[in-house]
Nucleic acid binder design. Structure first.
Lengths: 137, 137
DNA sequence: TTGTTAATCTATAAAATCTATAGGATAAAA
DNA sequence: TTTTATCCTATAGATTTTATAGATTAACAA
């Protein structure tokens, strides 16, 4: 299941991408429009900021804004920050590889084999999807 | 992340599929070979039995055995029983559809749009993979 | 300078889910 | 009728997710 964190994060990014202006948008405004707890959203946007495509400004008139064009913001990056590794098991993870402690041999592991396919499949979707693809009606 | 339940369930099914004989295999044997808590595995196999491709026999010489050929056991069925719906949000689920309570319009929802792609992609993998595909070395 | 606004940061509470175990019931075989 | 192994239900323990609280920092405006 998709976490609420990811769901909210995607909605917030979409909300920002739909703005005509590039002026900062307050968290309160996003939270209100997208039915999200403001405090929860604060944490989410904060973690998204580390990606480099999201900027923020403090004080009056402050808020969040996109630094890059939505078409330059890939879902691989967004999903990794929000949802964590794209792979469902760490032994097939590109960015967070870890050996399974209970599995003596990856080559012959059925779970490994299946999850490799799933990872490749998901990766292709995320690599070929940017924030701009989520906007269209 | 893949749950341990699913991981264990897949390993157990694979273990059964690799048997030469069609005689029942005791849970204890599977648990030992695959490093799984026996009691936990009991529950898992029990839930897998509902799919119809897994049979069991009680008493001495009892255990679990595959009713169908591994090539006739699709991952869609296995994953749905073990891991739950394949869709990451219920609003794109084929078998467990539910409207999101916080989302006024699916058509314009960015999460819906993205998760639809992910579901299709995963579904294709699971539909084209059977238990027999997980066996090969 | 001072007050107001809004993001930043850390900690933690509350809720939900996952993982594992316990123990008796049932069925089959010897 | 004893032994063996699955069946079934309940629940304990651990982990993760979701949400909130409150003090801090930065920017702006009067």
């Amino acid at each position: 299941m998709l976490s609420k964190k990811t769901k909210y994060g995607l909605k917030a990014l979409t909300y920002l991408a739909r703005q005509k202006t590039k002026e900062p948008i307050a968290i309160a405004e996003i939270a209100k429009h997208e039915n999200i707890s403001q405090k929860f959203l604060e944490n989410i946007l904060l973690s998204l900021r580390s990606t480099g495509f999201l900027g923020s400004k403090k004080g009056k008139g402050g808020g969040y804004y996109l630094i890059k064009d939505p078409s330059e913001i890939p879902m691989t990056t967004v999903m990794r920050v929000l949802e964590g590794p794209i792979a469902m098991v760490s032994c097939v993870s590109l960015n967070f590889y870890e050996k399974c402690d209970d599995c003596p041999d990856e080559q012959s592991c059925s779970v490994h084999r299946l999850m490799l396919k799933v990872r490749d499949s998901n990766l292709e979707v995320y690599r070929n999807t940017s924030l701009s693809d989520l906007l269209a009606r």
